[in-house]
Design a protein around this nucleic acid. Structure first.
Length: 530
DNA sequence: CCTGTCTGCCCC
DNA sequence: ATTCTGC
DNA sequence: GCAGAATGGGCAGACAGG
């Protein structure tokens, strides 16, 4: 044992000295070879993310290597780049349809053994046969591209060219509400078993016994299907509640009788019905089949396009139409809109997000959504690329009555490298070098007087700098303390998806957002009970 | 048994 | 989730 | 245009320690 420990130690030391990718891969390989069975998994978990990325990512490495291996076996050691790309694409698409490396690998092995002369034809045929969509086996869900304005959304939709049956001269677009819940692939097999999968295809069936009942009640009898849907927390009025409430549901051993957070299922796509894969059919047809099969909306199951009307983007007044639908959607307590080409097939997310689906959230738009001027009060040392800089940064709102500074959130998104360098120099007196403790700038020994937070910062600053921070919405926080006591006895108010917009050198701490303002904006959210 | 901390191919 | 960076 | 990196809030569960 001591012999093995010494070997491991020596290998870790060597890995620490490694500079090139080649050396890192060799170092990791040496360590992995020392492991038995599950030990490898735990070894890999201990490596920093940058090292884990070296040579062992499934999508980026394992799948392409499978293609290369097959090419080498079938066509010899000299592999053309185009062949490699073709094979890689086929394999990635197959994996998106059926996320099971074993099935994919078996199909590829079959091609190698078959020794066909038409390698690519044989590969496509074998993968198509083995990796077909099937109820009970969740594919990688189709993803939407974000748009930062209505104009941008329309431009993206027009750019999409893969549609096969453009209706009329201009593309018809489905408008749907973007509910703030959990994405769910809801499958029912031919034997009648219902399974619910998350966006990353984790089995969530145990968490949603009520959803199983709702969907079984709405579905046609004795038919298999694959639905795409959003599970949304709702109140007694059947209106959306904050996402935060959905996550308080138990995840294991849930009996539908004791579910405390009621949900509604907003369905929006149908991939399979009866014995047929309909993903290659255009959305118009899939949606028609969906509504024919599942009937009118009910208390428990609705359609994401309820309350919306399709639009045709002909450059006429579609921007106003969409903007007005966006405001309606936000008033109804949803995040915004999904805009979808009605002529596009369902595209499993192998690679880039499709422009056939575009998401338009209110907070992406300038002038909409919540933004606050907050005081910089502390921070930590960044990891990896940001090791020389302060990242993330803790920001706070203030209470004019007491002088308290209650933390709102950490921020890192939206900060550029150039800004980091300048900011770090201002608050620490220079970039962070080695293990030396910085001293200078606005650095303090502890939190400034009045600071209230559940966070423990590595660096605390003199409260001087004001930043404008934007978020999607406000939540009640167990760690952040802004406005604590105003809407909840202990919990403060925090920002979801915070990002830095700009520094406000024109503002002093006295001009920063107050607890009262933050509390008011929290209460003004349409899904918060008053 | 209670509490504090850490983890999750977590959810967003 | 969001955003920035480098290719 | 795309992949990769570095990170956000917040929850239930699991686990460690008293």
């Amino acid at each position: 044992r001591s012999r093995a420990a010494a070997d491991v130690r020596a290998s870790l030391r060597a890995l620490g000295r490694a500079r090139s990718d080649r050396a890192k891969v060799d170092g990791i390989a040496a360590l992995v070879r020392m492991t038995r069975g599950h030990e490898a998994k735990w070894l890999v978990k201990t490596l920093p993310p940058a090292m884990q990325g070296v040579g062992i990512s499934l999508e980026a490495t394992v799948l392409p290597c499978l293609g290369r291996a097959a090419l080498v076996r079938c066509k010899g050691p000299r592999v053309a780049k185009t062949d490699l790309q073709r094979a890689g694409k086929s394999i990635r698409e197959a994996y998106a349809r059926r996320g099971d490396v074993e099935v994919v690998a078996d199909a590829v092995l079959g091609v190698i053994r078959g020794g066909e002369s038409d390698f690519h034809g044989a590969l496509v045929e074998a993968l198509g046969r083995a990796c077909c969509l099937a109820p009970g086996v969740p594919p990688a869900p189709m993803l939407a591209n974000p748009a930062n304005s209505v104009k941008d959304a329309v431009a993206r939709l027009l750019k999409y060219k893969k549609g096969t049956t453009v209706i009329g001269r201009y593309p018809a677009i489905a408008v749907e509400r973007k509910y703030d819940g959990q994405r769910a692939a809801i499958h029912r097999t031919a034997s009648g078993e219902v399974r619910i999968f998350s966006r990353k295809n984790d089995d969530m069936t145990a968490k949603f016994p009520d959803v199983v009942e709702y969907v079984n009640a709405a579905a046609p009898r004795g038919v298999a299907f694959c639905l795409d849907a959003e599970i949304v927390p709702v109140g007694e009025d059947n209106k959306p509640r904050p996402f935060q409430e959905l996550s308080t549901r138990k995840r294991v051993d849930v009996a539908s009788a004791v579910v405390d957070v009621r949900v509604r299922v907003a369905i929006f796509d149908l991939l399979w019905l009866g014995a047929e894969d309909i993903t290659s059919r255009p959305l118009v047809e899939r949606r028609r089949a969906l509504k024919a099969a599942f009937g009118p909306p009910s208390r428990d199951v609705c359609y994401a396009d309820d309350g919306c009307a399709d639009v045709t983007v002909d450059g006429d007044d579609d921007e106003e139409t969409i903007m007005s639908a966006l405001h309606d959607a936000v008033d109804a307590g949803t995040e915004g809109l999904m805009l979808k080409r009605l002529d596009a097939p369902y595209e499993f997310s192998a690679g880039p997000r499709s422009n056939a689906w575009v998401k338009l959230k209110k907070d992406y738009l300038d002038g909409l959504g919540d933004s606050f001027d907050l005081v910089v009060i502390g921070g930590w040392r960044g990891q990896g690329r940001k090791n020389k800089w302060v990242s993330p940064v803790l920001v706070a709102a203030r209470d004019p009555a007491t002088g308290a500074l209650g933390s709102v959130c950490r921020v890192m998104s939206g900060l550029t490298d150039v800004f980091y360098r300048d900011f770090t120099t201002r608050v620490l007196g220079g970039e962070i070098v080695g293990d030396r403790r910085p001293s200078g700038g606005l650095l303090r020994n502890g939190p400034a007087p009045g600071v209230v937070t559940g966070e423990t910062c590595r660096f605390w600053f003199e409260p001087r700098i004001v930043w404008e921070i934007k978020g999607a919405d406000l939540s009640l926080s167990p760690v952040h303390k802004a406005a604590a006591g105003l809407v909840h006895s202990q919990r403060g108010i925090s920002l979801r998806f915070p990002r830095f917009l700009r520094e406000r050198p024109d503002k002093s701490v006295r001009d920063a957002a107050t607890f009262a303002e933050v509390a008011e904006r929290y209460r003004a959210q349409s899904n918060v009970s008053k």
